[in-house]
């Protein structure tokens, strides 16, 4: 069942598995699961996607990465996103390994490029914090 933000956007609904990800995001940390054999993985799930082990732990990452690929949504299929269009959806390759699909914030569409260094960026929407990325400031 979908829940909606006060601005109409559908919001992810934390589950017992994803709750630590959202709790960390609220504190401006990108925290991911790390398998002792295979390293970090994303999205949050109950078992490592490589070895299916469940002896992973939550660990903070540095939140840094670069754009691996991207597209630009100019239409906003969901009307609640029209206020944000055009917006970039990118695959971000994190320094710590995995790739995340996320929105790129604070960036002109014309400035997007493969390889652009980005950092995690946090947006509080009602009771939840969404993780996006933005060009590195430092």
């Amino acid at each position: 069942m979908a829940i909606f933000a006060s601005d109409g956007r559908p919001l992810p609904q934390p589950t017992p598995t994803t709750q630590p990800f959202f709790d960390a995001a609220k504190k401006r940390k990108l925290r991911l699961q790390r398998c002792p054999r295979d390293g970090f993985f994303y999205y949050p799930r109950s078992r490592c996607p490589k070895c299916l082990g469940d002896d992973w732990t939550w660990q903070d990452t540095n939140g840094l990465g670069e754009i691996y690929s991207y597209t630009v949504d100019r239409i906003a299929h969901d009307p609640a996103f029209r206020a944000f269009a055009p917006f970039a959806v990118a695959l971000v390759e994190l320094d710590c390994g995995p790739r995340m699909t996320a929105r790129i914030a604070d960036c002109e569409v014309s400035d997007l490029r493969v390889g652009l260094p980005v950092e995690a960026h946090y947006e509080d929407v009602d009771d939840i914090t969404l993780v996006s990325f933005r060009p590195r400031t430092a």
């Binding site: 559908p10 992810p12 994803t18 299929h77 969901d78 959806v89 699909t101």
Partner: peptide, 10 residues
């Protein structure tokens, strides 16, 4: 939609 923790439409 990109589901789970992404909060993005597609």
């Amino acid at each position: 939609s990109f589901d789970r923790v992404r909060g993005l439409p597609a």
